[in-house]
Design a binder for these strands. Structure first.
Ligand SMILES: [Zn+2]
Ligand SMILES: [Zn+2]
Ligand SMILES: [Zn+2]
Ligand SMILES: [Zn+2]
Lengths: 134, 134
DNA sequence: CTGATAATAGAAACGATTATCATTACGAGC
DNA sequence: GCTCGTAATGATAATCGTTTCTATTATCAG
């Protein structure tokens, strides 16, 4: 797990570009949308590279990921680094970070009662934001 | 929406086979696993047809669907037709139907506070069943 | 500056799902 | 039972997000 001495993760133009895009984009976006946004800004970053950085950032906990109803993965840089969930607009991707103590407790209780261990949970809310109410 | 007179949904060997497989399989399975199971039983049903029936059954509410962490869709015939969620084993797919009034209320409250409408929720629990505890 | 190697990016591969469409077979009406 | 319109089937091809491959480029410690 230790880096061979003198070796470190390299800083590249592409890494900063992806991070910057995530910082400026307000809602959840797909990798391809982020790629398109970068090109719009004149940044040349390969789609593969965008995917790779998103994966790394996600593993580091620097960005949150959700899966939209079609199965596509969406990414977003969140304000809080603590555990939380999202209420996301189906139309524009705008999202609100929500926290729910009750849900966490409910999940733990249910898991314990069933004798399951290493239980993880997925809780996602999708709806229409005030601007996109039907 | 009205059927032309005298026309009805036709009962076919394949429809029964898929339904039967779902009834006998204890946990969540992918379309491809169900297809393999049918072949194992000697039933000849095309993969396309399996997908088609699963989709119909799912729309009818006759089977529940979840998405495993890799994004694959899993199907299961549930005991209850009422709204509920699942606690599923990551290894064998065995699952427990769980109900949580608190989660439903929490979702509604959170959505209302944020001014979102038409809010739907996804709540899934994945863990290790007693037989597969690490 | 230089060399070892991390990072990049286009292309090809992948895998689940869906669309196409020629063929099969259910079943309502006789 | 037989016929016929048409729903259902299923092999194949297409789709699409994502990952893998690999030759090339660029970073940075020494
Ligand atoms: Zn919106
Ligand atoms: Zn949570
Ligand atoms: Zn298990
Ligand atoms: Zn619910």
């Amino acid at each position: 797990m230790e880096q061979p001495r003198g070796t470190r993760v390299r800083g590249t133009r592409q890494a900063s570009a992806v991070a910057a895009a995530l910082t400026s984009l307000p809602g959840f976006c797909s990798a391809q949308e982020i790629h398109a946004e970068l090109r719009r800004r004149g940044e040349t970053v390969g789609l593969t590279t965008v995917y790779r950085h998103l994966q790394v950032l996600s593993e580091q906990g620097a960005v949150d990921t959700i899966r939209d109803p079609s199965g596509e993965t969406l990414y977003r840089q969140c304000g809080s680094t603590a555990h939380h969930h999202h209420l996301t607009c189906r139309v524009c991707g705008r999202s609100v970070e929500v926290e729910g103590r009750v849900v966490e407790q409910w999940a733990e209780k249910v898991a314990a009662e069933a004798g399951f261990t290493s239980v993880d949970h997925t809780v996602e809310l999708f709806g229409l934001c005030p601007d996109h109410a039907a």
